[in-house]
Write a protein that binds this DNA or RNA. Structure first.
Lengths: 218, 218
DNA sequence: ACATTTTCTTAGGTTTCCCTAACTTAGCCG
DNA sequence: CGGCTAAGTTAGGGAAACCTAAGAAAATGT
């Protein structure tokens, strides 16, 4: 098992290394607000545990194993954030600090339950993907419904918000996941959209709504 | 602020010191599964911080300050347990380990929200009192079910033991907190008791069980 | 290309919290 | 009361994760 400190390093490496996957000691040091010599020794320790590839004077890179571990922590973080917002009524600006602590809890039971209560979300409300139980991120390229044009035909695959109110609204309109939606027209002045799906031939959705619906090409 | 380890000592002192309030180094050592010399030095540290009264070769006792700190941790623990059971659908027997970790989170915001969502409860799922925001416990007068007489009608409000097996047993008999129980008869020779509650018209409980069930006048 | 600056590493120190081994105090018993 | 045992303490050490100070490597500018 990884220590609390190790988990923070793994997470930082994951978050910083988006493009090349490489992160310098200094970047890590700044992100974690930990002095470079401390980072240096921790990086060595992580290399020892085969969590990172590392050679002196070179940037650090997560191994597959490291990526998985990091993914699992980020999974816990994002599920927690979502739960706090959707189920407990916190504001988005309030949840980061709490999730930062909760992500270190060791209890598959707990996070599985959260996952279940949230309806197994694949992305958080910011659109960031939530890694699966194996720590892997599914790199599906979701597109907001609001980014579609008239004539487009898409499949509704995810929602970025799962508050009771919003889910109730979706239900009342018969908007279920997997549904094929055809965009009929888009109003230029307010971004509202008229679409057809299922039995509905012309339903109008506000931009507030279409912003929260994620789609794939149908 | 207290460290993670300090918090565990405070909690153990609080839980062990129910009668006289005094706890020996050895008791602490056994409860925490930490060797005596380690306990000894931590106790000194806590005395330094004025969390406990301590003199060499004497038992340890929480100060008022220590009691308050311990109460606040226990408050977090019990609120967490209750939330897990009431709002997330966990079973009684599942929540202890999770709460044990959550109780160390530093976020008044988080626990206030839980408190609010639960409707400011004074009792947790095991029936133990929940300390208030100042760490103080309201001592309610409970009576063992085994001390009741035939004809008495009482409300089940707490259990004194919360092992997995015991909680599972209670579940299997439909014995939930808040339940109204009527004592039908008591066997003189073994103290076993026949009671009725809910849909059950004549359930027999051994003294081992009724000793662990706490009640209020209904 | 070489001198300066920046980045990284090494060395050595601190705090927290745990350990084992060995010693001391307190309580008990004949 | 003296001696034994159990409980408590002291001494010394180790792992984790941080630090500062100082030296080494790499990058950078003219």
């Amino acid at each position: 098992m990884n220590t609390y400190a190790e988990e923070n390093y793994l997470k930082a490496l994951f978050n910083l290394g988006n493009e090349k996957g490489e992160v310098t000691v200094q970047e890590l040091s700044r992100r974690l607000d930990i002095k470079m010599p401390s980072v240096n020794s921790m990086v060595k320790k992580l290399a020892e545990k085969e969590m990172v590839h590392y050679e002196s004077y070179k940037p650090v890179k997560l191994t597959e194993k490291g990526k998985t571990e990091a993914g699992l922590i980020i999974r816990k973080h994002r599920l927690t954030e979502m739960y706090l917002v959707e189920k407990m009524g916190f504001g988005w600006e309030q949840v980061h600090g709490i999730a930062e602590q909760v992500e270190h809890l060791q209890s598959p039971l707990f996070f599985d339950k959260i996952d279940e209560l949230l309806g197994y979300p694949k992305i958080d409300p910011h659109g960031s993907p939530i890694p699966d139980k194996n720590g892997k991120i599914q790199w599906v390229h979701y597109q907001k419904l609001s980014d579609q044009k008239a004539g487009d035909k898409v499949k509704l695959t995810a929602v970025t918000h799962s508050s009771e109110d919003f889910l109730r609204f979706l239900n009342s309109r018969g908007l279920n996941l997997g549904l094929i939606i055809k965009v009929l027209s888009v109003e230029a002045f307010d971004g509202s959209m008229t679409v057809s799906y299922g039995k509905k031939t012309a339903e109008t959705l506000t931009k507030t709504v279409t912003d929260k619906l994620l789609t794939e090409k149908a």
